[in-house]
Design a protein around this nucleic acid. Structure first.
Lengths: 232, 232
DNA sequence: GGGCTGGTTATGGTCAGACAAATAGGCGGG
DNA sequence: CCCGCCTATTTGTCTGACCATAACCAGCCC
């Protein structure tokens, strides 16, 4: 009794233990899959899966023939989930609010055309809006949508539906570049979020492509005290 | 000739194509593993791996007996690699510089003891230092190390080796919570990085544990214009 | 000595078959 | 009508065998 199956999870946990306890020093070569399979009494595929996952997590380094070694300085990557504002707010049990501040159709300004590789004179929709949580300003959104890529955006008023939710439905699977930075509050941003001029604002910029074509660029300014947090 | 093996990569690519081309609508049930295995002429394990990876990437949702469906709104997560400052600077082909500004041993202040769950009166090392790239200030580091967890930090002067590099060697595998935020430049930070008082500063805060015990807390302030960028 | 070549070996991946675990949805009892 | 049990179905995982691919290294030729 009690001798249950050893799963790849068990193997992974034990390998992780040996790595963190430094039984296997950083940079050291660890036993081959076959040896470990014998030791744990499992198939090689099982050891393989355990080691593959540890490699994905940045703890091991593997090369054919060269074998597997413990990463000298573990390459750690933090994962941030990028939720819809609405989902983020409602997940915290607060009421989500949306208000459109401005909407205009115009030829893309130079910096935007450059950023999105748009042909000169391409028309775009420019939107500014405010997302709030329990009535308090939460995030100011300054968005540009290329009408060349999404003609439908010209017909949508965005009075009740936020541009991000509209976009998710129009283009669900896209390629994204996102940046976080600190900016100084000014003008509309300061007014909408209640900042004094020049106050530091945590800001995200996101550009989205679909099938190689630029769709939209957005600058998101967060309310005072906002943090982007994760564990790893 | 020409009929090469279909790998799990091929299957994955084709499934991805069907998802992004919306042949399978968001929320729709996709065929079961057995059906797909038949269709592609591969083993079920191969389809399984393809679908498992797509699930990890947030494109599919799987439940036993209920089957696999396309995620209604794809849950996308951005990965940020968190490199050593030195590696980050040298990767850009610039010369790395390090300077210790201040070093003191003291009883942990209240906020720190609370943050790290330290017993009252626990002694800590407080370090401030500056990392530079090609001579220009790059990052100001304000670090606290618990002597309860790492007595060795009391003996190290940190004159030539940065605390992060020292710590990586002392505690290579740790649990980390990291936050990004925007702060106002003031005092030492402003002086070291050449900011005016109150200017916005992109800041990271990181707390590190090892085996459940808090090791260190650090606030990293970046030079003007710094961005944290990634694609996904 | 230097460079090419092929053998050896570790990881990468596929396969077919089997069993385990979870659970949606039907069935029966109250 | 509602609730709880059963079962068929679907994904999850393991096995042991096999072939593929990369690369270290020894030995050969020049």
């Amino acid at each position: 009794m009690g001798d249950e199956k050893t799963t790849f999870r068990d193997v992974k946990a034990e390998l992780l233990r040996r790595i963190t306890a430094q039984l296997w020093a950083p940079g050291a070569l660890v036993p081959g899959e076959v040896d470990l399979a014998t030791e744990f009494g499992v198939a090689r595929a099982t050891v393989n899966r355990a080691m593959r996952e540890l490699t994905e997590e940045g703890l091991l380094e593997r090369r054919r023939k060269a074998g597997t070694r413990v990463r000298p300085s573990p390459l750690r990557a933090a994962r941030f989930e990028i939720p819809l504002v609405r989902a983020e707010i409602e997940a915290g049990g607060r009421a989500y609010g949306y208000r459109l501040i401005g909407r205009a159709v115009m030829a893309a300004p130079g910096w935007l055309a450059a950023r999105l590789s748009l042909a000169p004179g391409t028309r775009v929709v420019h939107l500014t809006c405010l997302h709030s949580a329990d009535g308090a300003p939460y995030q100011f959104e300054d968005r540009w949508i290329s009408l060349a890529a999404l003609p439908g955006a010209g017909a949508e008023g965005f009075e009740t539906i936020g541009p991000n939710e509209w976009l998710i439905r129009a283009v669900p699977f896209s390629e994204v570049e996102i940046s976080f930075l600190a900016t100084a509050a000014a003008g509309e941003v300061a007014a909408a979020l209640g900042y004094g001029e020049g106050e530091p604002v945590f800001t995200a910029e996101r550009t989205t492509w679909w099938q190689g074509q630029a769709i939209t660029h957005v600058r998101l300014s967060f309310a005072r005290g906002h943090r982007m947090t994760t564990r790893y």
